[in-house]
């Protein structure tokens, strides 16, 4: 099973720029979602007048299902500067892929526990690393999109935009670069040096 854990309150507040549309995914029975904490945090955001709408739904990892649900809130989403997603990493990546020119951020970190891992399509992988990077990589996971799981940018191995390990696989960091460019967020490539923390699962 999975645990989704809220990111620190100050981290989420720092992510929210302008108006925000919120998506909560309570999809898989296999995912433990911090409902009460998320609700309290979102109420504070609502009280500050920053929220254009909230959609609480399930299985946003299923692109067809996600589109149908989100399109019912099109006006509220258009009125927002960003979409904040409270789900596992797969859900965030699905929404980011759909709104490719809108800022999409993760409100949770995803951590693996033994057992079933929920219902996910293979295109969007989440490594359940417990320190979600999607907010600094334009919604594309560097751990699963890069064959070396690099977190500080592209290696020298990309040829014609493809990975050195698998010529059928797009270079994850080329994708991230292009996405950040489209979002006007190339400044995120200058964040401090990132170091993986393999001790995160012990905090659960």
């Amino acid at each position: 099973m999975l645990i989704t854990k809220l990111k620190a309150k100050e981290d989420i507040e720092a992510l929210v720029t302008g108006k925000v549309f919120i998506v909560n995914c309570h999809g898989c029975k296999e995912v433990s979602f911090p409902e009460a904490e998320a609700k309290a945090l979102q109420k504070e955001l609502c009280d500050s007048g920053k929220v254009t709408g909230i959609l609480t739904t399930d299985y946003i990892c299923n692109p067809e299902n996600m589109k149908l649900r989100l399109e019912k809130h099109r006006k509220e989403i258009d009125a927002a500067d960003m979409v904040l997603v409270f789900s596992c990493g797969v859900g965030v990546q699905s929404v980011a892929e759909y709104f490719e020119d809108k800022k999409v951020c993760a409100g949770c970190d995803t951590i693996a526990l033994p057992g079933f891992q929920g219902v996910t399509p293979l295109e969007y992988k989440c490594d359940q690393c417990g320190e979600c990077y999607l907010n600094i990589t334009g919604g594309i996971c560097p751990l699963t999109a890069c064959s070396k799981s690099l977190v500080n940018g592209q290696c020298g191995g990309a040829k014609d935009g493809k990975c050195e390990v698998d010529p059928n696989m797009e270079c994850g960091w080329e994708r991230i670069y292009q996405r950040l460019k489209m979002l006007g967020r190339l400044d995120l490539l200058k964040v401090p040096v990132q170091l993986r923390n393999y001790a995160t699962d012990k905090e659960v």
Binding site: N152, G153, Q154, G156, G161, K190
Partner: peptide
Amino acid sequence: VVSPCSDSIDAQLAKMER
């Protein structure tokens, strides 16, 4: 190191800066 003739030159320059 940096790869000046890479076809992903913008991503390479970003990495060089890092």
